[in-house]
Amino acid sequence: MSRIEPLTLTQLDAELQAIMSAGEDMMGFTPNDGLIMARKPALLKALLGLVQAVYEPGSVPIGLKKLVALMTSSASGCRYCEAHTGFGALRVGVDENKVAAIWEYPTHPLFDAAERAALDLARNAAMVPNAVTDQDFAALREHFTDEQIIELVGVISLFGFLTRWNATLATDLEAEPEDGVQGLIK
């Protein structure tokens, strides 16, 4: 049970309802973390801007961004975010076998060298203390430009915030992502 109860959509003003509607359009369900965050409207508004900036079309494919989000969430130990990001990856067309094999990425044939470099970064950045090395960046630079690396670090950083938020608040997982990744996320 969430440590702070989510507000209901009817408790929100029109501007916050529009933000939550945008979240539902993006995610396929109304996220409980947003309904909790709505208790501090400025925070929810700022988060929407960050989410839009992180996921706007860029030069990193959306599927890779979703896998990086999944690895960050999984390595951080936030089951709420792990379910959300796994569900999000499936929604944008990432092969469910990749989602299921996320921790096998270093050797699994479904993952290419660029994905491995990005997932190494996500895993190492999610560790406390941060375990990213110069070697991680050397591997990234074989596949990504500085702009693309910034896009990847943006995803990792967004989920650094969200994993802390949701794990701390014990946010209740919604049925859609829970059902959507059942059997895929361990």
Rank of each mutant, 00 (worst) to 15 (best):
R3S: 13
I4S: 02
L7A: 11
T8S: 14
D13T: 08
E15V: 14
I19A: 04
D33E: 12
L35Y: 04
M37H: 09
A38H: 12
P41F: 05
P41W: 06
L43Y: 07
L43S: 14
G49P: 03
L50V: 11
L50H: 14
A53M: 11
V54L: 10
E56L: 04
P57G: 09
V60F: 02
P61S: 14
L70Y: 12
A75T: 14
A75I: 11
G77I: 14
G77N: 09
C78T: 13
C78Q: 10
E82D: 13
H84N: 14
H84P: 04
T85F: 06
F87G: 03
L90P: 02
E96N: 00
K98Q: 12
V99M: 07
I102F: 12
I102T: 05
Y105R: 05
P106A: 04
F111P: 09
F111C: 12
D112Q: 05
A113R: 11
A113W: 06
E115Y: 01
R116P: 01
A117V: 02
D120P: 02
L121G: 01
A122H: 04
N124C: 05
A126D: 05
P129G: 08
P129N: 11
N130R: 06
D134L: 08
Q135C: 00
L140M: 07
R141M: 08
H143I: 01
F144M: 00
E151A: 02
V153P: 00
V155G: 03
V155D: 06
G160R: 03
F161Y: 14
T163I: 01
N166D: 10
T168N: 12
T168Y: 04
D172T: 07
L173P: 08
E174H: 00
E174V: 01
A175M: 06
D179V: 13
K186N: 13
